[in-house]
């Protein structure tokens, strides 16, 4: 097989991690068919941070679930590392909004959930490492109901990272958080991403969030969703969110979506 290449903002040639070709998805409900995704083509590079952006109900979650193997497309294929995706896999973890943590397990228990195959000593080491990484020290024995929304979200990220996946799928992970926590969480996610260089596909309908986080922003149209445009965010981290380039890119996406940046 020939090495596949895609361009990243820095114009480095890197390996393709995920490739979606000719994805169509129709849902049947009450006898009527709705087309949700139409002919979606997508390539994600190894180690890339990609944001999927689009209006509510357009099919972002559907596309993400197809990539993660939870849904199969009506037509088309997704390959990861050249292998077709046929179902979920511990090498690629899907992070739901905070509600995905298991309420019957402690913080430790949640992080250990995917680690059953490791020895107790290795488990303990991983748990300690990721608890520290997401800043939950002192809450090892706490149950999710004793944590705030932001802490639960960090716990879910820690649980995902602990199995050392090479990809993360995040579906509006910060959507339920208040705006201050959301900002902090974005910073933490970037810090973790820079440390571990996982390939990340991140769904959001928040334009600012997409421009702050992503290497590339995939803008999707309203349903049936097609990829309207892909915007490269060629700003180094940490990003200055009042720099002219940031504002230019952000406003470009606002215009692309058809929203005047005035209220």
């Amino acid at each position: 097989m020939t090495e596949e290449k895609v361009k990243t903002p820095a114009a480095k040639a890197v390996k393709t991690k995920l490739r979606a070709t000719g994805i169509n998805k129709t849902f049947k409900r009450d006898g009527t068919e709705t087309s949700v995704l139409e002919n979606v083509e997508l390539e994600v590079a190894q180690g890339e941070f990609l944001c999927l952006l689009g209006p509510s109900g357009c099919g972002k979650s559907t596309l993400l679930n197809i990539c993660a193997g939870f849904l199969s497309p009506t037509t088309g294929t997704v390959t990861i590392d050249g292998e077709p995706v046929t179902g979920p896999d511990p090498r690629r973890i899907f992070v739901f909004q905070e509600r995905g943590v298991f309420p019957w397990l402690t913080v430790e228990g949640n992080i250990a959930f995917g680690l059953a195959k490791l020895s107790k000593a290795e488990q303990a080491e991983r748990i300690a490492h990721y608890i520290k990484m997401v800043g939950l020290q002192g809450f090892e024995k706490a149950y999710p109901q004793e944590l705030s929304g932001g802490m639960k979200q960090r716990l879910e990220v820690a649980r995902a990272l602990a199995v050392n996946p090479d990809m993360l799928f995040l579906d509006e992970p910060f959507g339920a958080l208040d705006s201050i926590t959301r900002l902090i969480m974005r910073g933490e996610l970037l810090r973790i991403w820079e440390a571990e260089r996982k390939t990340i596909i991140f769904v959001t309908h928040d334009i600012e969030e997409a421009v702050q986080l992503a290497d590339r922003v995939v803008v999707m149209s309203a349903r049936p969703a097609t990829i309207q445009t892909i915007v490269e965010i060629d700003i180094e981290h940490p990003r200055d969110i009042s720099s002219p380039r940031y504002l230019e890119l952000r406003d470009g996406i606002f215009n692309e979506i058809g929203l005047a940046h005035k209220i």
Binding site: G87, P88, D89, P90, R92, I93, F94, F113
Partner: peptide, 11 residues
């Protein structure tokens, strides 16, 4: 269904 999916995701 989220819990089941998370469980399946971890293999």
């Amino acid at each position: 269904s989220m819990y089941r999916r998370a469980g399946r995701n971890f293999g």
